[in-house]
Amino acid sequence: MPRFLFLTLLLFTRLALGQVAPVGNNPAAGKYAMVRGVKLYYEAYGTGAPLLLLHGNGGSSKDFQKTVPYFAKHYRVLALDSRAHGKSVDRTDSLSFEMMADDCAALLTQLRLDSAYVLGWSDGGITALVLAQRHPGKVKRLAATGANLWPDSTALTPDLWQQMKRGYQEGRTQTFTDPTRRNDWKVFLLDWRHPHISPASLAKVKAPAFIIAGDRDVIRAEHTVAIYQNLPRAWLWIVPNSGHATLHEHADEFNRQVDEFFRAKSVPVPAR
């Protein structure tokens, strides 16, 4: 039996039994694309306007278990494993948000998509902002939750910053021979060394943006507000009783609010 037919029958059988393969590990939805020398893994769901989902540091498309079912009803959802994450195969030595943003733009081009809505969590939110800066035509609108512009104690909470400093001190003198540990260190260094986005440079973001964070987020509230204030057109939502995982802790409301933003006819200019 051809592989495609087998996977289709498997998916229908699971649906009939109420068993749907989890996001991030769904053979019927998973695909690979060779993009800029990296074998990127993504899963595609639904039909409609394209929506690109971008996960956080050390995560994968699995992080969108509570996101995909909602948006797949009205969007063509593309849940991506960023380079060096999940099932994506990346044998390069370096990693930056600029590289990941360029990957996103190239993937959309390869899929013959002029542009997409973008929803990013944590590092994914940073990538969404950088994508909108470097490839403005590729982003219809973006929602970013738990994003930061630079890596230090003015952007991150003291606990997280101290934890990262300890992680760097413990790892900087080690020699990583195991490929998995070497990749994990590369992923850690991404957040230790990056990003470096000036507030003024956010003026380059022409797409309307929805800036989100929990009121107990690991990103300082004043930093999130500064991101919002420096964007040309933006909404701001500080989610009550929430930490960094706003899209998990308040999934139903989060999905509705982001969808409302994507569908809104206009986005006001932030108060300066």
Rank of each mutant, 00 (worst) to 15 (best):
205 V>C: 11
186 K>F: 09
185 W>F: 14
89 V>E: 08
231 L>D: 14
221 A>W: 00
187 V>G: 07
80 L>Y: 07
101 A>L: 03
96 S>C: 01
195 P>W: 08
49 A>S: 12
193 R>S: 09
256 R>M: 01
114 D>A: 14
199 P>E: 02
192 W>Y: 15
124 G>W: 05
194 H>V: 00
15 L>G: 15
96 S>P: 01
75 Y>K: 08
168 Y>Q: 12
177 T>S: 11
95 L>Q: 04
104 C>W: 05
110 Q>V: 09
158 P>C: 04
99 M>K: 12
9 L>F: 15
61 S>Q: 07
133 Q>W: 01
158 P>Q: 06
78 L>A: 09
201 S>V: 04
218 V>D: 06
175 T>N: 12
4 F>G: 00
93 D>A: 06
10 L>V: 11
224 T>E: 04
47 T>L: 01
173 T>I: 00
127 T>M: 12
228 Y>S: 03
139 V>N: 11
101 A>Q: 07
202 L>S: 11
30 G>I: 05
126 I>E: 04
268 P>D: 11
55 H>N: 14
262 F>D: 08
73 K>W: 00
227 I>S: 03
86 G>V: 09
229 Q>F: 04
216 R>Y: 09
78 L>F: 15
42 Y>N: 13
219 I>P: 10
66 K>D: 10
233 R>Q: 14
11 L>A: 12
191 D>A: 07
118 V>N: 04
139 V>T: 15
7 L>Q: 15
57 N>D: 09
247 L>S: 12
244 H>T: 03
250 H>I: 05
47 T>C: 00
149 L>R: 09
66 K>N: 10
51 L>T: 11
167 G>V: 12
175 T>Q: 14
227 I>P: 07
4 F>Y: 05
257 Q>A: 04
106 A>Y: 07
216 R>M: 07
264 A>Q: 15
46 G>F: 05
130 V>H: 02
152 D>L: 08
128 A>T: 00
180 T>W: 08
250 H>K: 13
49 A>I: 05
250 H>M: 03
202 L>Q: 08
155 A>G: 14
104 C>I: 02
146 G>N: 06
204 K>T: 13
239 V>E: 11
39 K>N: 13
117 Y>W: 06
226 A>I: 03
